[in-house]
Amino acid sequence: MTLLNIDNLHVKLEDEDRDIIRGLSLTVNPGEVHAIMGPNGSGKSTLSYVLAGREGYEVTEGSVTFKGEDLLEMSPDERAAKGVFLAFQYPIEIPGVATMQFLKVALNAQRKARGEKELSTPDFMRLVKDRAAKLNVSQDMLKRPVNVGFSGGEKKRAEILQMAVLEPSLCILDETDSGLDIDALRVVADGVNALRSPDRGMIVITHYQRLLDYIVPDFVHVLSKGRIVKSGDKSLALELEEKGYAEFTQDAA
């Protein structure tokens, strides 16, 4: 079954009249990694927020179906429980909520929503320790409040850790490479690659080709002015790196 089907999606900001997403269609099947590339202002982050269910956006036309259900009808927490995960470009700092506690509340809320048994504390601790070790996330980071005082690299690793613990079926990575040096990028990419599986789909949103050297996509789409103007395989990313986005921004105008 198709994992995600976006059909002719039009989105505007609630308090503005201009559409940001203008007729975007995309199908993601389980096991596929789709890269979405595009210049600033092309609607990349808007797309990720609309899929995650952030307030402030209005869908004026089109539909989004996730595992056969209308995704747009669901609240953000329902989407998460069904398997949607957005790795934020700028992960939010939450003072006073320890990372470990946050992960536990989130995982058990999702399990509860799916009618599964909540995980016991020892089982949960084992799961997190195992996943954290693979991502170089220290015990100290897990004790600290969510993202508070984390470096850019630590925040991105913490996002991937959340993904590894929550095991979503659709991962949306919004500019996960931004602010990372090459070593941090490798750790994050390894973490993402470890999560690639035949029943999990991924949308990797990025401005630069660099990330795609590490997370090799099955498909590359060019987003410009709110719609996909060209699709291809990974070679399209290299082409973009060479020629830039000028061709697409002019064509779309």
Binding site: A52, R54, S75, P76, D77, A80, I92, V105, Q110
Partner: peptide, 16 residues
């Protein structure tokens, strides 16, 4: 609101 959204995006219902 960003804090609330972030928690919800991880599956935590609004009230919680």
């Amino acid at each position: 609101h960003d804090h609330v959204f972030y928690l919800k995006s991880r599956g935590i219902p609004e009230a919680e």
